[in-house]
Computed example of a mutant assay.
Amino acid sequence: MSVTEEEVPADRVVETLESLLRAPPFVRSPKLTRFLRFVVEEELAGRGATIKAYTIATQALGRGPDFDPSLDPSVRVEAGRLRRALDEVYAQHADGLDIRVSVPVGGYRPRFIATEAAPAVADDAPLPDPAEVPPPAPDRPSPTVIGLTPRGQAAIIALLAGILLVLCIDLGLTVSARMAPGPAGPPRDMAVRGQ
């Protein structure tokens, strides 16, 4: 396929988007479908500069206004899944997709590149059996290292740091109490022996 850097008409991008969303990776994942539809529609509407992790999370992925992309990597994780899904579709199901939609690493703004259509398949070539598409998986939060959200992980770390601080203070008080001089006079054990 040869690539051209000409401007791609919006109607062709919309047609390509609808074709992409019918491909198995997107049929299986409503979250990826919402992500891709959102970024493409925002770009076509001239609002590409506003496509950020926060807007994707709150407007496409259903997160609340308190979403903090610096604490929650879910948009970055979903963007990686989106890039892999697009690569899979173009590698396996590129028939009729003469526009390549990509989301370059380092951002979330999509790019639209016109490609030459692949040569037609010979009439006598066997057609592949249509693959059955499994039912869509329910939306689940992305897995994290220890099964907690980043905010939950931060809370656990803060709790552990607090416990460590209390233990250090207790140890310091115990050591200083043992090293402090006792009351004036002979030690108690000597006073007992002297009687």
Score class of each variant (00 low, 15 high):
Ser74Phe: 02
Ser74His: 04
Ser74Thr: 15
Arg76Tyr: 04
Glu78Met: 13
Gly80Tyr: 14
Leu82Gly: 04
Leu82Ala: 11
Leu82Ser: 04
Arg83Ile: 05
Arg83Phe: 06
Arg83Asp: 03
Arg84Asp: 09
Asp87Thr: 11
Glu88Thr: 15
Val89Lys: 08
Val89Gln: 11
Ala91His: 08
Ala91Ser: 12
Gln92Pro: 00
Gln92Glu: 10
Gln92Lys: 13
Gln92Arg: 14
Gln92His: 10
His93Asn: 14
Gly96Ala: 08
Leu97Gly: 07
Leu97Thr: 10
Leu97His: 10
Asp98Asn: 11
Ile99Tyr: 11
Arg100Phe: 05
Ser102Gln: 13
Ser102Asp: 15
Ser102Tyr: 10
Val103Cys: 08
Pro104Gly: 10
Pro104Asn: 12
Val105Met: 09
Val105Pro: 04
Gly107Lys: 06
Gly107His: 05
Tyr108Cys: 08
Arg109Ile: 06
Arg109Asp: 03
Pro110Phe: 07
Pro110Tyr: 06
Ala114Gln: 12
Thr115Phe: 02
Thr115Glu: 11
Glu116Asp: 15
Glu116Thr: 15
Ala117Lys: 13
Ala118Lys: 13
Ala120Pro: 09
Ala120Cys: 04
Val121Tyr: 06
Ala122Cys: 07
Asp123Ala: 12
Asp123Gly: 02
Pro126Tyr: 08
Pro126Asn: 05
Leu127Phe: 04
Leu127Ser: 11
Pro128Val: 09
Asp129Thr: 11
Ala131Arg: 15
Ala131Trp: 06
Ala131Cys: 08
Pro135Phe: 01
Pro135Met: 01
Pro135Gln: 00
Pro136His: 00
Pro136Trp: 00
Pro138Asp: 06
Asp139Gln: 00
Arg140Gln: 10
Pro141Val: 03
Pro141Leu: 03
Ser142Tyr: 05
Ser142Ala: 12
Thr144Lys: 01
Thr144His: 09
Val145Tyr: 10
Ile146Ala: 12
Gly147Ser: 02
Gly147Met: 03
Leu148Asn: 11
Thr149Ser: 13
Thr149Glu: 01
Gln153Pro: 01
Ala154Arg: 15
Ala154Asp: 04
Ile156Ala: 09
Ile157Gln: 14
Ala158Ile: 01
Leu159Ile: 07
Leu160Thr: 03
Leu160Tyr: 03
Ala161Pro: 02
